[in-house]
């Protein structure tokens, strides 16, 4: 903070700067294990550890019917007011699909 160098032209220089743009905005996070999160981004770091607020988690579960070998896709949703997400499970982060 004491030198201004990192602030000069504080535009977008690396991918994480794009994540910063979404601070205090709702984001979409895709995670390993067919999980997705939508929530407001409150914090993140270089590992993409994150804290999200008002989170909706969507888990896609594929049930296989043992007799017919038919695949039934089931979607489970959960909500959480405040959630820390460990970065090693994160696949992608993006603004929500609205304009």
């Amino acid at each position: 903070m004491d030198d201004h160098a990192p602030l000069e032209g504080a535009g977008i220089e690396e991918p994480l700067d794009l994540v910063r743009l979404s601070l205090d905005e709702r984001i979409y996070v895709k995670l390993r294990g067919d999980r997705e999160l939508r929530g407001k981004l409150h914090a993140y770091d270089g590992h993409l550890n994150m804290v999200l607020g008002d989170v909706e988690e969507t888990i896609t579960v594929v049930d296989v019917n043992e007799e017919t070998a038919e695949e039934v896709i089931r979607i489970v949703k959960r909500n959480c007011e405040m959630l820390f997400v460990r970065g090693d499970g994160v696949i992608l982060v993006s603004p929500p699909s609205r304009a």
Binding site: G11, I12, E13, P15, H47
Partner: peptide, 23 residues
């Protein structure tokens, strides 16, 4: 100060930053 998982070399001068969102 753990290693950052994403490290992209910073572009040197801000002159070359893409025109559209030039600050």
């Amino acid at each position: 100060n753990p290693r950052q998982l994403l490290q992209v070399s910073k572009r040197g001068s801000h002159n070359e930053s893409s025109g559209g969102n030039s600050p």
